[in-house]
Design a protein around this nucleic acid. Sequence first.
DNA 1: GCGGCTTTGTGAAAATCTTCACAATATTAG
DNA 2: CTAATATTGTGAAGATTTTCACAAAGCCGC
Lengths: 181, 181
Amino acid sequence: MSSEEMSGRSATTAAQVRKDLSLFGSFGKRGLGYDVADLSERLKKILGLDRRWRVALVGAGRIGSALVEYGGFAERSYDVVAIFDSDPSKVGERWGGLRVRDISQFVSVAKDQGVEIVILAIPVEAVPSVMEYVEEAGVRGILNFAPTKLKVPERVAVKDVNMVMELEALSFALSQEDEEA
Amino acid sequence: MSSEEMSGRSATTAAQVRKDLSLFGSFGKRGLGYDVADLSERLKKILGLDRRWRVALVGAGRIGSALVEYGGFAERSYDVVAIFDSDPSKVGERWGGLRVRDISQFVSVAKDQGVEIVILAIPVEAVPSVMEYVEEAGVRGILNFAPTKLKVPERVAVKDVNMVMELEALSFALSQEDEEA
DNA sequence: GCGGCTTTGTGAAAATCTTCACAATATTAG
DNA sequence: CTAATATTGTGAAGATTTTCACAAAGCCGC
Ligand SMILES: NC(=O)c1ccc[n+]([C@@H]2O[C@H](COP(=O)([O-])OP(=O)(O)OC[C@H]3O[C@@H](n4cnc5c(N)ncnc54)[C@H](O)[C@@H]3O)[C@@H](O)[C@H]2O)c1
Ligand SMILES: NC(=O)c1ccc[n+]([C@@H]2O[C@H](COP(=O)([O-])OP(=O)(O)OC[C@H]3O[C@@H](n4cnc5c(N)ncnc54)[C@H](O)[C@@H]3O)[C@@H](O)[C@H]2O)c1
């Protein structure tokens, strides 16, 4: 597949595809393009997707439920290996093959299970107390759904998901269109 | 509040805050900083958040359910005014104050309700057929959860939410750390 | 009203990112 | 083997974004 075709399938340009790839090495054949299987494998390695990652879900609420039941994570490289909540009525429930555990067990269970990434799906108020556990357990990456800026040590990587902000970006685009008209 | 304090609360710098704001006008007072209430109001106007937006949810599944029950959208400027699905067992259900409607009614209901933004939470396979309705109804913005690149006319704004990609960005960051060590 | 302190708004400089454009290389047809 | 065609990889140019740094304002205490 050529860089031209790749750019057509995503939201970028052929030159951008080639430049981006060139930062990691030389993957294509001149005149021919890229071997999809080979490129895919090499990129997976670069992105750390040549192995599976152990993930814990914290917050067995609405978002948490949608995520755990979703097959899209396991299909890629992510296995949810533990689920935590603080609500006694949720602790003990079975979700998929897992039992919801009390958040107080986080550190021991996470260490035991080798959890490297946490999906944080709890209310903003609960964030500071939970972050203490997360830090103590030596978690290295956090996918955060709570609309708050996490305070983490330098070594911890954080990605925020904020759907309200995405909607706000849409509103802005639409308002701009209106003004131009 | 000074640009310094604002930058401390978010992931940016004081100079960036001032430069960004200066693109839209002059909001602060030298030596004093910004009046939070005033700045907030003026930014809301610029972002198109000085009015409410009418949103339809398409796909009454796991993600859709989490979103509809979530209060965070109504709290900002977004009202979900209609819900659609194609599954006969879901059509007719009551979700919050709304009845789940059949997707075939999308165009007429969306036009009737003045829907401007659609939240797309359906499987990838269902996207092309649903997009025909969405386009015909004159929807102007789409928040897309399906992991596929939407084909839309120029005037339609799209924002993609892709949690797997966020996790992959985390994996990459963690792999990089490992390599450095 | 003046001096000291603070913080904005913004040109200019620096850094980063994207696009251009083409030599190098590979394939295919004859 | 040669010519025609395709497409990479990458310097250089161009565009955009971020940071720097400071004159211009504004507040406060005396
Ligand atoms: N639902 C959505 O569509 C949506 C969208 C965007 C953002 N969010 C954000 O995601 C987060 C979760 O949202 P939700 O809708 O799933 O909320 P939810 O109330 O349905 O679920 C939150 C869960 O966290 C648990 N919890 C509370 N304190 C805890 C603690 N200290 N330790 C462990 N678990 C604890 C609760 O018991 C509950 O089960 C919130 O910050 C919300 O703002 C949600
Ligand atoms: N659940 C998650 O955590 C998650 C995470 C990331 C991405 N996604 C993506 O979000 C989308 C929805 O995921 P989900 O987990 O909610 O799936 P789901 O299967 O729970 O829900 C999808 C819903 O869409 C409905 N539907 C199917 N075809 C339709 C059509 N033509 N018109 C209207 N409705 C139709 C189904 O009946 C179902 O109710 C998928 O594309 C998925 O890949 C989900």
